[in-house]
Amino acid sequence: MDIKELFAKQEEMQRKTLNAKNEKESEITKVMTFYIGDQVYGIEIPSVIEIIGVPHITVVPGIPYYIKGIINVRSKVVPVIDMRSRFGKEEKEYTDRTNTIIIEEAGVSVGVIVDEVIGVIPVFQKNIANSPDRIGVNDNKFIKYLLEMPDGIKLVLDVAKLIYDGDIYLTDE
């Protein structure tokens, strides 16, 4: 038998047993993590369009204080939300480390300003903590689930709720 085939077969078998054994350990998704204050938050990668610094923000009247205004992302006008003030934290001056993460859900783009982007981590089923009942409701309505990682707990945000704000209906223009 060809040695290559043998290798392939062996690899295949290994993978199979691994999968059977570690069903719980298969990667579900990837999450981009970032700081808001001291807490690490995350957003699932499929919702992330791009990460930029903080560009010039054009102030728009008549909108809530946590929406800082609109920015121009490659000829597209996108509103930006300051996450610190969205979560009721004290606002901080933007620095070189401050990032704007452009996220999109159902065709609506929004930029969220966070203190600092950390990186991307893979998420396995075993990392998802059994959430207390309070997750997903009231003050915690923006949290989709908790991740228990060796280096601490991370809160993964629910982008749809963040954009649609839970109770606001967006007209289809």
Partner: peptide, 15 residues
């Protein structure tokens, strides 16, 4: 204005 902002009355502000 971006769709996200259509929930607020920016028009009423004169823009």
């Amino acid at each position: 204005f971006p769709k996200y902002l259509s929930q607020y009355d920016i028009k009423g502000e004169g823009l």
